[in-house]
Nucleic acid binder design. Structure first.
Length: 495
RNA sequence: GCCGCGUUCGUCUAGGGGCCUAGGACGCCGCCCUUUCACGGCGGUAGCACGGGUUCGAAUCCCGUACGCGGUACCA
């Protein structure tokens, strides 16, 4: 890489950070770190109508949670700030004026109604969406059609206006996309994009070009939805006399239902679209990152599990695939389970505590919780399932699984459990091994199968027919609790 | 409609002319382990969109068709 790598993640604060946005950020981050470059965060808040107050902090929180803190951004500015576009208005106006002076842009005074009327008039089956372009602009109200005096007067009068890109009438714009290689557009297909809106703020197209240049961005890595407007950006770089950064348009993340992953076609399939939901649900950041990295990229060998460090070492845009990737929640679940199981019991205690707090349960020490984690972590997909899967570690079962009761509490279960309870009461060392000995001692003596006793005891202790090792569970619960639960069940099921 | 981009198992993908009887992962199915359920181990299922070329030889190169996706805003 000849020049210093500087990339940016440039979300618009119009809502909570989207999972696809996090992947875009991740690819930018990996690319930057792979090349020892910088990863910047720039807030593209030029649309005042869609501005959402909490969005910016949501974005920052998500990036930090996922382990990709920006090297520069609104909170830790470098030398090219400000990092919010709303704070850079004068800069954009300056370049817009330059473009006008050069003849590469022009003032347009058409109202929304004027444009609508033009579209209505020109609309046809072949052209359902007439554009404001090199052919239609000749019949509109702009500084290309109006006299110089009139233009000056209108501006002096404070008439609302926009500044539009003066797209050449013919030619092609070609560029090399790192992921797609050669891409070519006929300028005839481009419209005279609005560069400065009537509210004085730039559109994305102008702002992004000006900022990327001024901020020294070497590579623009963004979603494929931008590919169609890339030629306009290339034109802007050319008109402004700047070298365009390298471009890489990432394939989109798709819904299993088809189309872009959006609230509508994802959440009803059980796929959250906002990163904050993944955080809330208890996904491990490493798992989400690993999963997201592999949605459209892979190292070229058969590895599936890679940490952020490994991803950084291996990542390259050339290996990013060209086609969209369907979001497969089952695979994410598998990644999460994998990471969960690889983590130490101790490190998961805080997650358990968080869930307990949510459930209003308290009063258990860390050693106890660590054992609970140990017993549970191989049977859950998410830490948020800890409480549901292991409620019996914290309180006596309030209800009993009907099927399990029917299967377990029959025949001479009452006698067997009563005998077991008596043995437990006499036990001086309430250890898993001893409990196991006692239980199997009874079944052997009575000549019945192990399950005849184990199952009713399990139901009595946990309320269900399956779960972690029963003896370790009983050891953790302690003698008093075990005896009490056995009594309760004996009373309940002896009728 | 027009413009652009894409198309290997259900899904994520490896593959860049002979190494491909197309490899891995998730899912699913089966077996083993386990005196529960899981975990784990082993095995199986399933794919080069279609049609033409080019070539001794094509999943790999070219053209076309179909399909999918994106864009077509004073939104990003």
């Amino acid at each position: 890489m000849s020049k210093n790598v500087r990339v940016r993640f440039a979300p618009s604060p119009t809502g909570m950070l989207h999972i696809g946005g996090l992947r875009t950020a991740l690819y930018n981050y990996l690319f930057a770190k792979h090349h020892n470059g910088e990863f910047l965060l720039r807030i593209e808040d030029t649309d005042q109508n869609r501005y959402v107050e909490e969005a910016e902090s949501d974005i920052k929180t998500a990036l930090i949670w996922a382990g990709m803190p920006p090297d520069e951004g609104p909170d830790n500015p470098g030398s090219v700030g400000p990092y919010r576009q709303s704070e850079r208005s004068e800069t954009y106006l300056k370049y817009a004026r330059q473009l006008i002076d050069q003849g590469n842009a022009y003032y347009a005074f058409d109202s929304a109604e004027d444009i609508e009327a033009m579209r209505e008039e020109l609309k046809s089956d072949e052209n359902p969406n007439p554009k404001y372009d090199s052919t239609t602009r000749t019949s509109m109200k702009n500084s290309l059609t109006l006299s110089k005096d009139e233009v000056e007067n209108r501006i002096k009068n404070g008439d609302p206006y926009v500044i539009r890109l003066n797209v050449p009438e013919s030619g092609t714009v070609e560029f090399n996309d790192i992921i797609r290689e050669h891409v070519s557009f006929d300028v005839k297909g481009l419209d005279d994009q609005v560069l400065m809106k009537s509210d004085g703020l730039p559109t994305y197209h102008l702002a992004n070009v000006v900022d990327d240049h001024l901020m020294g961005i070497s590579h623009v890595i963004r979603g494929e939805e931008w590919l169609s407007s890339a030629p306009k950006h290339i034109l802007l770089y050319k008109f402004l006399g700047w070298e365009a950064p390298e471009m890489a348009h990432l394939p989109l993340i798709m819904s299993p239902a088809g189309g872009k992953l959006s609230k509508r076609n994802a959440e009803e399939l059980g796929i959250p679209v906002n990163v904050r939901d993944y955080i809330r649900l208890g996904y491990e950041p490493d798992a989400l990152v690993n999963f997201l990295a592999f949605l459209g990229w892979n190292p070229g060998d058969e590895r599936e599990i890679m940490t952020m460090q490994e991803l950084t070492k291996e990542f390259s845009l050339e290996k990013v695939s060209k086609s969209g990737a369907v979001f497969n929640i089952d695979k994410l679940t598998w990644y999460n389970e994998h990471y969960l199981r690889a983590m130490t019991d101790e490190s998961l205690v805080p997650a358990l505590e968080k869930e307990l707090t949510k459930a209003g349960i308290s009063g258990f020490n860390d050693a106890y919780l660590e054992t609970v984690v140990h017993l549970l972590k191989e049977r859950v997909s998410l830490t948020s399932e800890f409480v549901n899967q292991g409620r019996f570690f914290f309180e006596a079962p309030s209800e009993f699984d009907e099927k399990a009761v029917k299967k377990a509490w029959k025949g001479d279960a009452i006698d067997l459990v009563t005998e077991f309870k008596d043995e437990v009461e006499k036990l001086t060392d309430h250890s898993a091994a001893n409990l196991n000995d006692k239980l199997s001692g009874i079944t052997e003596a009575r000549g019945v199968g192990f399950g005849k006793l184990m199952l009713p005891v399990r139901v009595a202790i946990t309320g269900t027919g399956s779960g972690p090792d029963l003896f370790e569970t009983m050891e953790l619960l302690g003698k008093e609790t075990v005896v009490k639960r056995l009594d309760t069940a004996l009373n309940k099921f002896s009728e």
